[in-house]
Amino acid sequence: MKPFSYERASTPAQAAAAVAARPGAKFVAGGTNLLDLMKLQIETPTHLVDVNGLQLDKIEPTAQGGLRIGALVRNTDLAADARVRRDYGVLSRALVAGASGQLRNMATTAGNLLQRTRCPYFYDTAMPCNKRVPGSGCTAIGGFSRQHAIVGVSDGCIATHPSDMAVALRALDATVQTTSATGTTRVIPIADFHRPPGSTPHIETALQPGELITSVTLPPPVGGTQIYRKVRDRASYAFALVSVAAIVQRDGTGRVAMGGVAHKPWRVEAAEVEMPRGAAAVAGRLLAGARPTHENAFKLPLAERTLAAVLEQARS
């Protein structure tokens, strides 16, 4: 690990200013992904700003009837919150499908959104990777790509976003609140938070340098049957090959987002008009234009079948 200096911030604006003022500075909250990457020198911050003291660890009702989740709420506490379990079941389910009990106790809501891909070539510093070293090339294209993305990919990157939580947040139409070094705040819809890889896969989110996530807001509950189904290589503690977050209403309408298939939680609202017609119709539009590799083409039928199983579960 490269040496770094360290400070604790006491307000969001101060934290944002501290990171904005120093090139190479980063926020640290749970640290579960950042420290792992620092040990491998994939992340090499020269300065860490610890945001754990910012008191952004509350879950509060909003005036609109939704919930505002502080950026520092731990994954365990979000999954266990009685309001989330009752009204946003897909979010509880997605959270407990991810990582291990220890990691969920440490990982934060904002950090979960900002975690990096688990592409093995991103992790292998001996290999080219456009995300790690811009312009160096992509080893996954033509390499071992079983875990990789099938939609929204570019010629420079086929990495997936590994979060389960974010897939549920996409289905729930969450928004991300931030503050900058100057104290200005803004709201980013979750749909726009993660960027397509394009020719700049190293730029992963809409955040500006030093911009700090302060909360994630859920709109008022939409009811329905809420399901998160994750298909993975072992029963627990593994990343998704394919996952489906679904909210299905009694009349068969609803929302679907997928994980494990793209650089971001993958949702196409236009595909959801097909929901009463079944999984094949929805998957056909949701995954239109897919560009799988020869190693991950299985994800196309897997995604459709997983969605079919979810819709059947919702009906029963």
Partner: peptide, 12 residues
């Protein structure tokens, strides 16, 4: 709370 101590900095 159970925590993996390898992924937490002492200073945190």
């Amino acid at each position: 709370r159970r925590t993996v101590s390898c992924l937490s900095l002492a200073v945190m």
